[in-house]
Design a protein around this nucleic acid. Structure first.
Lengths: 345, 345
DNA sequence: ATTAGCACTCAAAAGAACGAAGTGCTAATT
DNA sequence: AATTAGCACTTCGTTCTTTTGAGTGCTAAT
């Protein structure tokens, strides 16, 4: 693939990303200031097609990128700094709103990503099994409301409330705090299984009416911990590929399938941006879409995954640039915060 | 409007609700076992149209209900017991899952309503200003995380977390608990204004770095208190009226506009089901939709509003019946719970 | 090696023809 | 007087046909 071919391929894909219409040789010459005639470009296009980088929708149509074409584009032609100063500033301002829960930070990042790229974004937190319980705390609100707070090593805080029909005593709270902490501290955030439940029941002789709700609620917290956060679903409806309501519905359905989304976000390498184009996706439901994901982290600790789902002709340059920037910012800012703390110790 | 006209009008609207197609005289005779010929029915239809209850899409088309027609239908013809035993059971089972936060109950009700009716539902909690702070509690998690929990008289529990760079002392927690409780208990859940902020700063001589985040977070809690909960947006896309992507987009946009939604849900009379048909909606964005809302409550205490947004030809009978049932259940069940507690006191 | 020129292809738009679904009205019927 | 059969008339949507135009591929000239 010589330079001229690369340049033309890039132009075709850039143009197609913009217009969503098959690209003609003359349009390329006009808009991309190629110093060749349309005939020459046509010859090159024919060859690019022969080599599998481009397709046609019908014999006399303009060219459309093939998946191989997109792959080449992503690997070789993408601009990784396709981000403006305004955008950087906007991201910074968003991320620096004082948030106190890691989860909020991830949400803000996800929302911001969707705002800037105009694509639908998704996020999941760290796998529950990978998080260790740092503290579990029982707190009495009023006389009959029991609040349970679980803090994990990654800084996640989860809480729930139980309302009892009878007064709860402060002494009971102490006992609960002691028992659950000695038993769960340092353990991964996973459901309380039968043996553990029995152990607990054995250990304290509170009635099952007291204990059962606690166990249920803790299990609920764990379950909820891998909730999926979706942002900007609506935005996708503005895309021309969704002019067929069929596709739009299909898209919404994919997003609704929790398992599918989890799998997608779970695969992918840490510390890197992962791009899956069309059929490269494991899930056939996604064969018409592209997915770009990255795991964000603070230092070595993975904090979750954020992904973008959009048409195959998504603006990879912009998406990748913005993701890189957000990723860097999260890591850097938070690491600094931590360092600040350390220094004061 | 004589009985026969009513019967025919009802049949037209029922049929149109089902099919979303203009209704012909012959279809009415066939499907609704009218003991008149299509010609007679046609005469009646013509008169109903003359009186403004029906419309035509073009000269030779079947009839379509007008807004006046829907209004009459809702006021006079609606069946308020259009709910099956299975549906009642389903609602009961859903509502009786042990929930501990009022908010969860509202969410479950909203979701269930959407599941049964297949329309999009929305909910808001009680207006923050109407809720009184019953308790505000500061809790230390680890050494540097401060959790703030606010409990309101309606049983709402809101919490947030602040991470400090320095250790927080237990003694400081006590002071905060004392000060904020004496100052805010019994007060409505509203933002902390400048004078109050200054008063607090005067009162305790902790540095502004400690206090400012607390005030910010409390204000954030208050702001978040009137968040909108949306359920079943996707369902609406299955409606034939959304085959035009234009309308679908419009619909999604309306749902996105927080202010619009708040206004809609806010208006409406307590203890009753409110129906707004097409142009009856204050917001012109909703002129093609109907909105049905009700405020749910336990005893005299309003706990929030739940609404349905759907096409003008929504199944009013079903919607109203299900809403009535849910409303009753919430009120009754919870009131009983409260009574149970009282008796034990 | 590049480009002008032109025949050829195909999709999408515009137009024409036709059938189906309904109404409204008149005249016949109960 | 109320109802209904019967039929002309309207309009929509569908299908089939024609036209238009954008775009290619190839050949021959530069």
């Amino acid at each position: 693939m010589d330079e001229r071919k690369k340049k033309i391929l890039q132009a075709v894909i850039d143009e197609y990303i913009n217009t969503a219409e098959p690209v003609s040789s003359s349009a390329l010459v006009e808009k991309y200031e190629l110093k060749y005639s349309s005939a020459t470009v046509r010859n090159e296009l024919a060859e690019l097609e022969k080599n599998g980088y481009l397709d046609k929708t019908h014999t006399s149509s303009g060219r459309v990128p093939s998946e191989k074409g997109y792959r080449f584009y992503v690997d070789e032609l993408v601009k990784e700094d396709d981000i403006s100063l305004e955008e950087m500033k906007y991201i910074q301002s968003k991320l620096s709103t004082k948030v106190n829960e890691i989860e909020d930070l991830a949400k803000i990042a996800t929302t911001t990503l969707s705002e800037i790229t105009h694509y639908t974004t998704v996020a999941i937190g760290p796998k529950p099994e990978k998080q260790l319980i740092e503290e579990i705390k029982f707190i009495l609100l009023g006389n009959r409301m029991l609040m349970i707070v679980i803090v994990t090593d990654s800084g996640l805080v989860k809480e729930t409330i139980i309302k009892y029909d009878k007064d709860v005593l402060q002494s009971q709270i102490e006992t609960l705090n002691n028992l659950f902490n000695t038993k769960l501290k340092g353990k991964p955030l996973s459901k309380i299984d039968k043996p553990m439940e029995e152990y607990i029941l054995d250990e304290i002789n509170y009635s099952i009416d007291v204990i059962k709700p606690i166990i249920d609620q803790i299990n609920r917290i764990v379950e909820e911990a891998d909730k999926i956060y979706l942002e900007g679903t609506n935005r996708s409806f503005d895309l021309p590929e969704f002019k067929s309501l069929e596709l739009a519905k299909n898209f919404v359905n994919v997003l609704d399938e929790k398992e599918v989304m989890l799998d997608i976000l779970d695969s992918g390498v840490a510390k890197d941006i992962n791009v899956y184009i069309g059929d490269e996706n494991d899930k056939k439901e996604l064969k018409d879409f592209s997915v770009v994901t990255f795991k964000h982290s603070i230092g070595d600790r993975e904090l979750g995954t954020i992904g973008i789902i959009g048409p195959k002709r998504m603006n990879y340059s912009k998406v990748i640039s913005v993701m890189k920037y957000i990723s860097k910012r999260i890591n850097q800012d938070k690491q600094n915060e931590k360092k600040d703390n350390k220094e004061e110790d």
